Amino acid sequence: MSRPPEQAAARTRVPRFTHAEHRVHRATATLMAVCVLTAGCLYLPFLAQLVGRRALMVTVHEWSGLLLPVPLLLGLASRALRADLRRLNRFGPHDRRWLRAAVRRRGDRPAGKFNAGQKLYAAWLAGAVLVMLGTGLLMWFTLPQALGFARAGGTPIAPLVWRTGATFVHDWLALALVLVIAGHVGRAYGDPESRRGMRTGSVDARWAAREHPLWRPEGKSE
């Protein structure tokens, strides 16, 4: 006996992400988690006392931060990832309608493969990571004998006043990052199908039609 059309449609799945994109997302998330956890061990007294080995935490934090852009840079070899980055970079009239509907809590939210909220999150996160990397390097280069390139007598490469400003920006932006990432994780856990799409590479066709009505999985223009 053939299944009713409703059941067949419910089982239809469409491709959303490739294995390369999944690996880039997983590697970036892992490095970000290491950065956040080691930062907690450096700044929160109860975690510092619990873990100890501050020098090791500093080293792990520094290198996980330096490696953070690497998965994305390696992932640029993937055509699918480059195409999704172009989608994330485009902000059209339907994205403005999506934002207005989200603010007013209305249901009509037109979106392509990525909605306006995801585009803003991706842009903000990319900028924040670059700023964190830059301020982290400034803090590193203001240490005596940083990377072995300090001047004679252990004088730091960059002026010490730069470290004060870099530390201020780095610390407060780190707090903002934790809050924004927590919101991102919370939204992901509130949408199991979106999470499944990143994990398995495909999503339910009805979910795609409801949440991303302008997206054409077959490769048609959005």
Score class of each variant (00 low, 15 high):
Asp95Gly: 12
Pro71Tyr: 12
Ser78Val: 11
Leu88Met: 09
Arg87Trp: 09
Leu73Val: 11
Leu81Ala: 09
Asp84His: 12
Ser78Lys: 05
Asp84Gly: 08
Arg86Ile: 13
Asp84Ala: 07
Ala80His: 06
Asp108Ala: 15
Ser64Gln: 00
Trp98Met: 08
Phe114Ala: 03
Met57Trp: 07
Leu73Gly: 01
Phe91Ile: 00
Ala116Met: 08
Gly92Gln: 14
Met57Asn: 08
Gly112Pro: 06
Arg105Ser: 06
Ala111Glu: 00
Gly117Arg: 15
Asn89Gln: 09
Ala77Thr: 14
Leu76Arg: 06
Leu68Asp: 01
Leu66Asn: 00
Leu67Ala: 15
Ala80Ser: 13
Leu85Tyr: 13
Asp108Gly: 06
Ala77Trp: 14
His94Ser: 14
Arg86Lys: 14
Ala101Lys: 11
Gly112Trp: 10
Leu73Glu: 00
Met57Cys: 13
Pro110Met: 04
Leu99Ser: 05
Leu72Ala: 04
Arg90Thr: 10
Val58Thr: 08
Lys113His: 04
Leu99Arg: 10
Arg90His: 10
Arg79Asp: 14
Leu74Cys: 13
Arg100Leu: 15
Leu74Val: 15
Arg82Ser: 10
Arg79Ser: 15
Arg109Glu: 01
Phe114Thr: 04
Ser64Lys: 00
Phe114His: 10
Arg82Met: 10
Lys113Asn: 03
Gln118Ser: 06
Arg100Cys: 07
Arg82Ala: 12
Ala83Ser: 08
Arg97Lys: 11
Ser64Cys: 01
Glu62Leu: 15
Arg79Val: 14
Leu99Thr: 06
Leu68Trp: 08
Gln118Val: 04
Leu74Asn: 10
Leu85Thr: 12
Gly75Glu: 10
Leu66Phe: 13
Asn115Ser: 03
Val103Ile: 15
Gly112Phe: 07
Asp108Ile: 09
Thr59Cys: 03
Leu66Cys: 00
Gly107Arg: 14
Leu67Phe: 14
Pro71Asn: 09
Leu73Ala: 05
Pro69Asn: 09
Arg97His: 05
Arg79Tyr: 12
Lys119Tyr: 06
Gly112Ser: 10
Pro93Gly: 03
Asp108Cys: 06
Arg82Gln: 10
Leu99Ile: 13
Leu56Val: 15
Val70Asp: 00
Pro71Cys: 08
Arg105Glu: 05
Leu99Val: 08
Arg96Ala: 15
Gln118Cys: 08
His94Ala: 15
Leu74Arg: 13
Ser64Asn: 01
Leu66His: 01
Leu68Gln: 06
Asn115Glu: 06
His94Glu: 15
Met57Val: 03
Trp98Arg: 09
Pro110Trp: 07
Trp63Ile: 00
Ser78Phe: 05
Arg105Asp: 05
Gly92Asp: 14
Leu67Val: 04
Arg109Ala: 01
Gly65Arg: 01
Arg90Leu: 08
Leu68Glu: 03
Asp108Leu: 14
Leu76Trp: 03
Leu73Pro: 00
Ser78Cys: 08
Gly75Asp: 11
Ala116Ser: 04
Val58Leu: 13
Glu62Tyr: 12
Ala111Asp: 00
Asp95Ile: 11
Leu99Trp: 05
Asp84Phe: 05
Leu88Gly: 07
Arg86Phe: 12
Pro110Gly: 06
Pro93Asp: 02
Leu72Tyr: 09
Leu81Thr: 05
Gly65Asn: 02
Leu56Glu: 11
Arg97Met: 02
Asn89His: 11
Pro93Glu: 02
Phe91Asp: 01
Asp95Ala: 11
Ala101Trp: 05
Gly75Arg: 07
Ser78Ile: 08
Leu56Asn: 02
Leu120Lys: 07
Lys113Val: 02
Leu120Pro: 04
Ser78Trp: 09
Leu68Val: 07
Leu76Met: 10
